[in-house]
C-alpha cells in the first residue's frame, strides 16, 4: 500500500514541467520523508561573478521536496498544496555542486501537514538552507 503511494508520488513529481526544466530528481520517498537532488547548471545562477545558484532555485527544490514528503505520509490520502513556506539561507551553495535536500513531515492533522527540510551540497556538515512549511491535506 505504502509502496503504491510512493510510486504515485514519484511518477507525479517526475511529470512536473518545472522540475524537468531544472533537472530535479526524486532520490527517495516514503513514510513522510522525501529526498531530492538539483544538479548544478548555468541557467540557475544568481550571481554571474561567482557562479552561485539563485535562492529561487533552492526554493523550488525545497517546496517540491516538502510537498512530496507531505504526500508520502501514511495519513495523507492524496495531493497537497503549500500554505506557507519559510526558507533560511545559511550560506552560498558551492558553484558546480549538486544541491540535495531531505524533507520530513513531522506532524500531520486532518487538515494540515507540517514539514521541515534541509538542503546540503558536498559539504554535508554545514547546511546551505533550511525550510519549514505547512501544507494542505486534501480530502478524498
Amino acid at each position: 500500500m505504502q509502496g503504491d503511494k510512493s510510486k504515485f508520488a514519484e511518477q507525479f513529481i517526475n511529470l512536473i514541467p518545472h522540475c524537468q526544466a531544472l533537472g530535479m530528481k526524486l532520490t527517495g520517498i516514503g513514510d513522510g520523508m522525501a529526498e531530492m537532488e538539483l544538479p548544478y547548471s548555468e541557467q540557475i545562477v544568481g550571481d554571474p561573478e561567482t557562479g552561485v545558484v539563485h535562492g529561487g532555485a533552492v526554493s523550488a527544490l525545497m517546496d517540491t521536496c516538502c510537498g512530496a514528503a507531505a504526500m508520502s505520509h501514511p495519513s495523507s490520502p492524496s495531493g497537497t498544496a503549500t500554505i506557507d513556506l519559510r526558507i533560511d539561507y545559511m550560506r552560498a551553495a558551492t558553484p558546480g555542486q549538486a544541491i540535495r535536500t531531505r524533507a520530513e513531515c513531522y506532524h500531520i492533522t486532518r487538515s494540515v501537514a507540517f514539514v521541515r527540510a534541509t538542503a546540503l551540497d558536498d559539504d554535508t556538515e554545514q547546511p546551505v538552507a533550511t525550510a519549514t512549511g505547512a501544507f494542505t491535506v486534501e480530502r478524498k
Binding site: I16, H18, C19, G55, L61, L85
Partner: peptide, 15 residues
C-alpha cells in the same frame, strides 16, 4: 508545477 490543474509551481512563485 501541477500539470493536472494546471498551476504555476510554488517554487517559481517563490523565485
Amino acid at each position: 508545477g501541477n500539470p493536472m490543474i494546471p498551476a504555476i509551481h510554488g517554487g517559481v512563485t517563490a523565485g
